[in-house]
């Protein structure tokens, strides 16, 4: 139940945040995020010093867009566990233990940075903007329509499921999960309700002139700002990828301190 509530809340939150006046074009957002993720995963497995510099993108975005760190940590947690699970053998099987620890730490950092970048992207882009970006990138219209429809009926079906689960729990208190004897009828009923609903949806859509695809209308985006956003961030990410920022900062600090002495 809590999981369903959380999912519904997440969808509402994503919709609400995306309704903010966002003047940057979604394709610019998508491009910057993909370049950032590619840059992150392209680091060598022992290059933790260089990888650490990529945190600057995350920090700046979080401060700029006032993203809740608490929510972000909740998102990162499962990926953190997954990367730890995959990388836990590295200290044992790598060349040396210290090399293994380094490669494991790099793997964990990569996982955290990638999820955070995706999270930042999608807290600022609703499904409508995503679909618009996908259409511009020549994704098949069928797929975009499926995405839009899925999003539209996700909350309806989740609420339906929540009601069914509540009814089930009231009749079977203290039971963990759905009893195997009711697997078929419970999920099957949800499925039948979904299909019936799909039929009603289709009928009403036809009455409104549906011709097989949804039209995703462009919104008003600031072209100059969008291009500037993409250009500045792409250059910054490439710079972070090439230059070890923290090592350079450390060297600069030492130089200043030495000059002072």
């Amino acid at each position: 139940m809590a999981k369903i509530d959380k999912a519904i809340k997440d969808i509402h939150t994503a919709d609400n945040t995306s309704e903010r006046n966002n003047s940057v074009h979604p394709v610019s957002w998508l491009l910057v995020t993909i370049i950032y993720i590619i840059a992150v995963v392209s680091f060598q497995k022992y290059n933790i010093a260089g990888l650490a510099g990529m945190v600057l993108y995350i920090l700046i975005q979080c401060m700029w867009h006032e993203i809740s760190i608490k929510d972000m940590i909740k998102r990162i947690w499962p990926v953190f566990l997954l990367t730890v699970l995959v990388g836990i053998a590295n200290p044992l099987f790598d060349r040396t233990v210290s090399a293994g620890v380094l490669s494991m730490a790099t793997l964990i950092l990569k996982g955290i940075f990638c999820v955070t970048a995706s999270y930042i992207l999608f807290t600022h882009m609703g499904i409508r903007q995503i679909c618009y970006a996908l259409r511009i990138l020549h994704f098949p219209k069928e797929l975009v329509t499926i995405l839009l429809l899925m999003h539209r009926y996700l909350i309806v079906l989740l609420k339906e499921l929540e009601r069914m689960q509540l009814a089930y729990k009231l009749r079977a208190p203290g039971q963990r999960g759905l009893h195997f004897k009711t697997w078929g009828s419970f999920v099957g009923l949800l499925l039948l309700r979904s299909i019936d609903r799909a039929g009603e949806v289709y009928d009403s859509m036809q009455l409104r002139g549906f011709n097989g695809t949804f039209q995703v209308f462009p919104e008003r985006y600031n072209t100059v700002r969008s291009v500037a956003y993409a250009a500045v961030w792409c250059i910054a990410i490439l710079a972070l990828r090439i230059f070890p920022v923290f090592e350079m900062m450390e060297a600069a600090i030492w130089r200043i301190l030495n000059l002072g002495v």
Binding site: I4, L149, M150, R152, L157, I195, A198, G199, Y202, M205
Partner: peptide, 15 residues
Amino acid sequence: KIPVMGVMGAFVFAA
């Protein structure tokens, strides 16, 4: 088929 696919996708997500 497309609307059915959309709703079925939502169903799988809910399931």
